[in-house]
Structures are given as C-alpha cells and as structure tokens.
Deep mutational scan, measured.
Amino acid sequence: VEVSPDIYQQVRDELKRASVSQAVFARVAFNRTQGLLSEILRKEEDPRTASQSLLVNLRAMQNFLNLPEVERDRIYQ
C-alpha cells in the first residue's frame, strides 16, 4: 500500500474532526503511544524514504483513516 504524502495532515484533520486526543487515535489506529504519534507528526518524514518501522505505522494509520467515518467514530467510543 502506497502511503499518501499528506498522511500527516490527514491525521491532524481527523484529530480535529473527531475531537479525539493523540493518545486515543494512536491506540485505536496503530496500537502505539501518544508519544510516538507526536514524534511522527513532528518529524513528518517523507513516506517514500521512511524506514520500514515508520512505514508500518503510517500504513496502519492510513488503513484506519480509510474506514468509513461512522465506523471510525464508533471505534473511538
């Protein structure tokens, strides 16, 4: 799965849209901590040159964001 270069903005938009914390998003989207998500968003590494471990996390976030909005909102509950 190709990771979109605007994945970082997509995540920020989703945090605002759903009014969820980084901690909640990190847990449900890719089963990691708020600290890691914060670092990923701060660095904004180009997905095309990202490490394998970062790509795994970015893909998981993208797959989560590809779910229908209704389903994502249900998962946040």
Rank of each mutant, 00 (worst) to 15 (best):
V1L: 06
E2R: 15
E2K: 15
V3K: 04
V3R: 04
V3H: 05
V3F: 06
V3Q: 04
S4P: 08
S4G: 11
S4W: 09
S4H: 10
P5L: 08
P5G: 08
P5I: 07
P5N: 08
P5A: 15
P5T: 14
P5M: 10
P5V: 09
P5R: 10
D6Q: 10
D6C: 06
I7N: 06
Y8V: 03
Y8G: 00
Y8T: 01
Y8A: 03
Q9F: 08
Q9I: 15
Q9N: 15
Q10S: 12
Q10E: 12
V11G: 00
V11H: 00
V11T: 09
V11P: 01
D13T: 15
D13A: 15
D13E: 15
E14C: 01
E14H: 02
E14P: 00
E14R: 01
E14W: 00
E14K: 02
E14D: 01
K16Q: 13
R17A: 00
R17L: 02
R17V: 02
R17M: 00
R17N: 02
A18Y: 05
A18C: 15
A18N: 14
A18I: 15
A18M: 14
A18T: 13
S19E: 14
S19I: 09
V20L: 11
V20W: 03
S21W: 01
S21F: 00
S21L: 03
S21I: 03
S21E: 04
Q22A: 06
Q22T: 07
Q22L: 12
Q22S: 09
Q22R: 11
Q22P: 11
A23R: 11
A23M: 08
A23G: 14
V24G: 04
F25R: 00
F25Y: 03
F25T: 01
F25Q: 01
F25W: 10
F25S: 02
F25L: 05
A26T: 04
A26E: 13
A26Y: 01
A26K: 03
R27Y: 06
R27K: 15
R27N: 08
R27D: 15
V28S: 12
V28C: 13
V28M: 06
V28T: 11
A29F: 11
A29Q: 01
A29K: 01
A29T: 13
F30L: 09
F30Y: 03
F30C: 08
N31C: 08
N31E: 09
N31M: 06
N31Q: 09
N31R: 11
R32M: 10
R32Q: 13
R32L: 06
R32Y: 05
R32W: 08
T33V: 03
T33A: 09
T33R: 09
T33H: 14
T33G: 12
T33F: 05
Q34E: 12
Q34P: 07
Q34A: 12
Q34R: 12
G35W: 13
G35T: 14
G35L: 11
G35M: 14
G35V: 10
L36E: 15
L36W: 09
L36Y: 04
L36T: 13
L36H: 13
L37P: 02
L37N: 04
L37H: 02
L37V: 05
S38K: 13
S38C: 08
S38I: 09
S38N: 13
E39R: 05
E39T: 06
E39S: 10
I40P: 02
I40V: 05
L41H: 00
L41C: 03
L41T: 02
L41V: 04
L41I: 06
R42C: 07
R42D: 13
R42N: 10
K43F: 05
K43C: 08
E44P: 04
E44C: 09
E44D: 05
E45M: 06
E45Q: 13
E45W: 06
D46Y: 04
D46R: 04
P47M: 04
P47R: 02
P47C: 04
R48G: 12
R48T: 09
R48S: 14
R48W: 06
T49D: 10
T49F: 13
T49I: 09
A50C: 11
A50S: 07
A50F: 02
A50E: 04
S51T: 12
S51L: 03
S51W: 02
S51P: 13
S51F: 02
Q52Y: 07
Q52D: 11
Q52F: 05
S53I: 07
L54D: 09
L54H: 06
L54I: 05
L54C: 06
L54M: 13
L54N: 08
L55F: 08
L55I: 09
V56G: 14
V56S: 14
V56F: 11
V56A: 08
V56C: 05
V56M: 09
N57F: 09
L58T: 02
L58P: 01
L58H: 00
L58N: 00
L58Y: 01
L58A: 01
L58I: 08
R59V: 13
R59G: 09
R59A: 09
A60F: 06
A60S: 11
A60K: 13
A60Y: 12
M61H: 01
M61D: 02
M61C: 11
M61S: 02
M61Y: 02
M61R: 00
Q62P: 02
Q62A: 12
Q62G: 06
Q62Y: 04
Q62D: 06
Q62V: 07
N63K: 13
N63C: 14
F64M: 03
F64N: 02
L65E: 03
L65K: 00
L65F: 03
N66W: 09
N66P: 00
N66R: 13
N66E: 09
N66H: 12
L67Y: 10
L67K: 14
L67M: 14
L67S: 09
L67R: 14
L67D: 00
P68N: 04
P68Y: 03
P68C: 07
P68A: 08
P68D: 10
E69H: 05
V70T: 10
E71I: 04
E71S: 10
E71V: 05
R72K: 08
R72H: 01
R72S: 02
R72T: 02
D73R: 04
D73A: 04
D73L: 04
D73K: 03
D73N: 08
R74D: 13
R74E: 08
R74G: 11
R74Q: 10
R74M: 12
R74S: 10
R74A: 11
R74V: 10
I75F: 13
I75Q: 15
I75C: 10
I75A: 11
Y76P: 00
Y76S: 01
Y76A: 02
Y76E: 00
Q77G: 15
